[in-house]
Nucleic acid binder design. Structure first.
Lengths: 107, 107
DNA sequence: CAAAGACGTTAGCCAAGACTTACGGTAAGT
DNA sequence: ACTTACCGTAAGTCTTGGCTAACGTCTTTG
């Protein structure tokens, strides 16, 4: 279950913010940190976590490092969630009917 | 963005384990804790977090409390992820082509 | 070759949170 | 009514992890 890293990565709000920005436009570390409330090293550390989770990819461009979304990590989470989607809806439906029956028992 | 709680909730391995068990079968707190490496209060605290994240629902059954999967929290995460899915695949395709061009520049 | 720009890494600090133990509260059985 | 079963909560401990400041590395440019 390597999706553990992906969930842990997206659990942090700052990391989700970085991820959302990269989804709009591939960017370098400094560009991301410039208009964010945390320091550049902090962003760099977050990117490291996102990279190890398979959520982003990095490429060298001169002295800069451009980061970009990686669909692999995203796919793992989606697959894990879809595993529960059907049974969740089914359980929800059953619960609604169960509560309805509870009402009919005491008219 | 209420999906923050859902992500934070599923970030913990023990909480994911509880969630997976509930997806297989609605269960009471004691039943869950009996065959898990943590104490019953720990499971109870985890269930509280999952409930506040909209991932589970609880119902009273005598002295027991049966927990069950809730599709609401699941849906929020899925919606958030799907927001990036298309752009992620597009970015990945562009990156592959970019690397191919890089090869052609140095034959 | 030296200086500057852009990053990654380390050390250290501090708050968040995952556990356990102990306690109180409610419902069912005798 | 008393006991038993099941559960949530409070207090306390200890680890995890996010942040900053300082330093080291690599590439480009003059």
């Amino acid at each position: 279950m390597t999706n553990a890293k992906a969930f842990a990565a997206l659990a942090d709000p700052t990391r989700r913010e970085v991820f959302e920005r990269l989804s709009r436009r591939p960017s370098a570390v400094g560009d991301l940190a410039s208009d964010m409330p945390v320091s550049r090293p902090a962003v760099s550390q977050h990117l490291k976590v996102l990279k190890e989770a398979g959520l982003v990819t990095d490429r060298a461009d001169g002295t800069r490092r451009v980061y970009q979304i990686d669909p692999r990590g995203l796919g793992q989470i989606r697959a894990w969630l879809d595993q529960f989607w059907d049974v969740a809806l089914e359980a929800f439906k059953a619960e609604v009917e169960r509560q309805a029956d509870e009402q009919n028992d005491k008219p």
